[in-house]
Amino acid sequence: MTNDVTHTADKTPAETPETTTGSRIYRPLTDIVETTDGVTLMLEMPGVAAEDVDITLEKRVLTIRGKVHATQPEKLQLAYAEYGEGDFERAFTMSDDFDPDKIGAQVSNGVLTLTLPRAAEAQPKKITVTAS
């Protein structure tokens, strides 16, 4: 083990009010892709199990929260740390044409994938302008 300090990609703390316990809240890195049927979000939330994810869509604001299970190997003490552990939280303002009942969420290997299909009635309608 070397004593060199390694420069790693930092996790960004979320710009949210402080926690009472003093633990950090991180902002998960997100990829967002727009497809023909809707929008897909992929959020990196390592250490978060599927049952610990909380997703709400209220007044166009999509909020994603993930509770982390701390990894503390038994009988061992932290000797060197490059990353911190904490819950994840991030919110996005969406357009209002998503059906909250049709949002699909799936967690695999610490990545949460959210699929938001656009509501059928909200598919773009073309309005033709007639010349008078």
């Binding site: 990609a9 061992l76 932290l78 990353y83």
Partner: peptide, 13 residues
């Protein structure tokens, strides 16, 4: 320096 991936934590006992 380029950031290193993955970041590691080392535990000792």
């Amino acid at each position: 320096t380029q950031p290193v991936f993955p970041a590691v934590n080392v535990w000792q006992g």
